[in-house]
């Protein structure tokens, strides 16, 4: 199980998704497309996102678990959906703010 800390990067084993951890620490069963995510740079063995975890990720969006203990930022989009264990992460809606700088 991958060990998370802010700043660590993970890559999907079944699509092009890459994320960077914004919040979260310790052993977390971080998945994309239903399959465990790999440390960035690791070779992927192909495959396809599992049914029910193929909603896709969006560049620059943040994804959180319901308790907001784990938060990742998508740095490369793909076809899989992010999750912890079997539970999918939610897209964290940015609060619309007017540009202040």
């Amino acid at each position: 199980m991958p060990s998370l800390k802010p700043g660590s990067r993970f890559t999907s084993s079944v699509c092009t998704t890459q994320v960077i951890v914004v919040k979260g620490a310790g052993e977390v069963d971080l998945r994309c497309g239903g399959a465990p995510m790999l440390a960035a740079g690791a070779a992927t063995d192909g495959g396809l996102p599992a049914e029910g975890a193929s909603g896709g990720t969006l560049m620059g969006k943040r994804y959180v678990d319901p308790d907001e203990t784990v938060e990742v930022l998508c740095t490369k989009p793909g076809d899989g959906s992010l999750g912890v264990g079997d539970a999918l992460l939610d897209l964290k809606e940015a609060k619309p703010l007017p540009a202040s700088d």
Partner: peptide
């Protein structure tokens, strides 16, 4: 930046 700016917004 993450808290106040939308990526590619």
């Amino acid at each position: 930046v993450l808290g106040s700016v939308e990526f590619m917004g």
